[in-house]
Structures are given as C-alpha cells and as structure tokens.
Design a protein around this nucleic acid. Structure first.
Lengths: 267, 267
DNA sequence: CAGTGGTCTAGACCACTGG
DNA sequence: CAGTGGTCTAGACCACTGC
C-alpha cells in the first residue's frame, strides 16, 4: 500500500501497516505519511494553487484537509522550507518562495565583490545585447531536454558594476513556456530575471547546477567585457530547474574575477 | 533565563517561562531547549567525548542524561545531522561524522571529471613537493586568525588523475595543533588529508569557505602542472574550519579544467 | 485578542540492524 | 529478540504578528 494518494486532493491518508502484503519479488518502497503530504503540497505549488509570495493555508487547515495531525503537516512543510520552496514566518504564515524579494535576490549568483559586501556596489547595470528565437543546437537541446531543432529563445547580456563590465551571459530558454519574451521586455524589467519568469511566464526556478571552468575569451567576448584576449575568466555553465527536475534555462556566463570572486560554502 | 545550561554536564534543563523578568532595556534572546541540548552535544563532540566514527549515546540515553524528552533530543540531533556533524543510521545509532569514510571522501573537493563519474578515474596520485615550518605572512595569519610571524606549517603537493597533473595545492596549517606533521607522514598516508588530521591531530574539519577566481599560472606553477603559462586555471582559496568557527587550514589550489570542472549545486 | 508558526511532552507503533 | 532511529498522534503551551 505505497500508492496512498490517488489524484484527487481531499482524501484520507493511508497508514502502511501490512508490509507483508506487498508485491512479491519486489521491495515495497516505504514512503512515510509526511512525504506523501509533502508530495501533495508540492503538486499544489506546481499547479499554481498558491502564487509566489502568497501564503499557503495554515498548518491546521492543511492537517484538516489531508486528515493527518498538525505534526505531520509540519514535517512536510519543514522539508519544503529546507529546499527553499516555501518560507515560514512565525506569527504570519507560510509563503510560497519567490525570486522577487529583496533579501533573496540573485539567489543563484555567487559572484561577490572582493570586500564581501554585496550592498557596497549598488545595483548592477544591465545591457541586453540581443534576444532572438532560433532552433536548438544539439548541446542546448540536451541541456534543456528538448529535441535538436526545437524552438528556443537565446539572449545575451552584459552586467556591469560601477560602470565596469563584469559578467557576460548567454542564455537559452525553451520556446514553449517562454513564448512572447522579447528583448524589449528584458530591457525594461527591473529586478532579477528569475522574478520576471515567475510573474510573466509562471516559471519558478527551484534549484540549479553549475559547472565552472577557467577559460580565455574569444574576440567577441573580450570586446564586450572590454578586456584582453589573455585575461582568464570564469566560465560558469548553469542549468536551472523548475519543479520536477525539469530544466528550464541554460546559462553560460563569463565572470571577470579581478575585483570579484565566486563564493562557495562547503558543508 | 537564557543561560539555562552552566558548565557541568548532567543538569536539568530549564524552561524559559518568565519572559517578563528579563534584563530591562535588552531583548532576552530566546533559545529553545533543543538548541541548548544541541549546544551540549556539540560541546561533547568538541571535547572528544566520542571520537569520529564512533556512536554517540542513543536518543533515549541522551534524553535521560539531559532530563528532556526524546523528541527534544531528536530535534537537536536532527540539526547536527543536517550540518554533517553526525550521521544517523536507522537501527544502528548516531555516529560522529568523519572524513575517513568511503562514500564521503573528499567532501570538500568539488572538482569532478567531465563525464561526471568520480569513480571512473580511480584514486588520485599524490606527490608532496615540500613541507616546511615557517612564520606566517600577514595574509596567512589573517586567514588562520593568528598573529603575523606565528609558526605555521606549509605544504605543497600535486594531484594527478590518470597520470596527468590536475591540481596544485599550497596549504598552511597553524603550527600549534599540527606539531609533528612531516612530509614523510603526508607522503605515506593513504586516504584523505582531512582523515589524517582527525586521527593524528584530533582536528575535525567541519565546514569550509571557498573563493574562486580564474588566473594564469606563474613559471613554477605551470612547470609543476606541465602546462603553458597561457593556460587559464581555477584558483580556489579555501579556509576550512573546525568547531566554533575556528579556521584550521588555508589552502590555495590551482585546478586544471580541460578534463575536469568544478561542480556546484544551488538551492 | 485571535491566529499563526514554534516548542515540548508522552506514548504508541513501525522499520531496520545485529546477535 | 532487544535496541536503535523513524513516524505519527494529541495536547499543552510559548513567541510572534497584526488587528
């Protein structure tokens, strides 16, 4: 009895007592109740039942809805909070996480000024170099789990700090979910790009993976960053995922690291 | 009543009921019971009451010892487990984390082969270039929270994969805790360096911070890595900490990234 | 003051390990 | 089988927020 929750929402949770009655020759994957609840809440988040920034129902409400104790709902939400999918605020409620908040802006950008103070340099200046639709090359298609030749959107931009070009980014988005995204829209939006993705296209980036290398720029790249072709740069390839481990963005960044560095914490 | 646990171990935990009786003009920092328990367990870990790899007392034992419920101990241990200070194993117990285990070896090394399979290339070949005692320069002293001129131990080594030099590391250790460490010992030890630190010097690295840049090697560096002076390399400066946020190692690595990359996961 | 998340408890039962 | 961590519950109370 590991298929405890069929598709409809309001349903009583099933305890998995009879472990002997499982499929023979196969280990019945044990999934605790709170994991199932977590899955249900996840499904609602995914379906957009609650929008980014909004509060989700209180723990007692959810406990009633799912016919479990508050403690079980609590443990489910604990895990969602640990994965940054929701934010708990004591006395107020639990809120769907968003990239559009001041203190979590640029959650995925690990480049910081050498003095360590992200606030010391003010907001980045952004310049969209171009933005066009094209057909996915083999490697882009693979990264985004599309087929070669599928429609994708490509953009290139430069970020500058204190007037100095520091980051050159190329990014690719699947054509379907991001239909209607234009250079205009990108240029005039103020705030993190991922916030725009949320509000305009309903795409929430939930986690990302980065592959980092040291490279030398080609002629076009060095011109845009205004450095010599012999200046070593960080190459940061990022794949960002929505719910369900679905890749939704490929980003290739070149970071200038003379006044900034990529900061990472290891646990 | 936020100073609930004085220095002796076996003591009854105090509830913090009377919040009105706090120091006037100052917010009484509320610290929940499980945090205090966590602090006590942490203190025992730090004091070496249980060695790396050993089991700590069971939850019920600890609950008895601290005069709290098992649930409270559980929450304390949950946090310690989340910080990788202990490892829980259902049915067996809770164990002090160690760097000397197969599946968590090289916990702090994020460089992986491009095919992503860490096991495909076999163990790294290690060569100690040198290892000597000297006086801390200003920047090394600052990183290790020592005074300029204090005794430090410096080592340099090259790691090779499939015979190809890939990582050049310089590292600095505080002279006091690592008294007696020699090039001999480093050369003949098989296993992660951090495991040696645990077993031989009782120093457990708990977390680390890295600053990453792209650089070009100098003549000596390029010779050791057998690459040209125009080959861009990842510069990875790591500070590793023991308990209490005490820095215990400064490491400056140069990573060759033509067949490997630095892998990072963002949440 | 009511409503929210956060803490703490005591007890029952389950899943896993090893002797 | 006993001992461990893991789940789930019901209930009490605390801390914080906003009305």
């Amino acid at each position: 009895m590991s298929q405890a929750f069929p598709s409809t929402a309001d349903q009583t949770a099933s305890r998995q007592g009879a472990s002997g009655a499982a499929v023979p020759g196969q280990t019945a994957a044990f999934s605790p109740l709170y994991q199932q609840i977590k899955g249900l809440i996840l499904r609602s988040l995914q379906a957009g039942e609650w929008k980014p920034g909004e509060a989700i129902p209180s723990e007692v409400d959810l406990a009633t809805r799912f016919h479990v104790s508050q403690g079980t709902v609590r443990k489910a939400i604990d895990e969602l909070a640990a994965e940054n999918l929701v934010m708990r605020r004591q006395g107020k409620g639990t809120f769907v996480a968003t990239h559009a908040e001041q203190h979590v802006q640029y959650r995925f950008l690990k480049l910081v000024p050498d003095n360590g103070d992200v606030n010391s340099e003010g907001p980045a200046q952004r310049e969209i170099i171009d933005c066009k639709r094209l057909r996915a090359s083999a490697d882009v298609a693979r990264a985004l789990q599309l087929r070669t030749g599928d429609a994708v959107l490509q953009a290139r931009r430069v970020l500058s700090f204190a007037g100095k070009p520091t980051i050159l980014e190329d990014l690719w988005l699947p054509g379907g979910p991001f239909k209607g995204l234009t250079a205009e829209r990108l240029t005039h939006y103020h705030g993190p790009m991922y916030a725009l993705f949320e509000t305009e296209f309903g795409v929430r980036m939930v986690r990302a993976e980065e592959k980092i290398r040291a490279v030398l720029p080609d002629a076009a790249q060095s011109a845009l960053l205004k450095v010599g072709c012999d200046t070593p740069l960080l190459s940061v390839e990022r794949i960002a995922y929505t719910y369900n481990d679905t890749p939704m963005e490929l980003r290739r960044g070149l970071y200038l690291t003379d006044t900034h560095h990529y900061r990472n914490e290891l646990n």
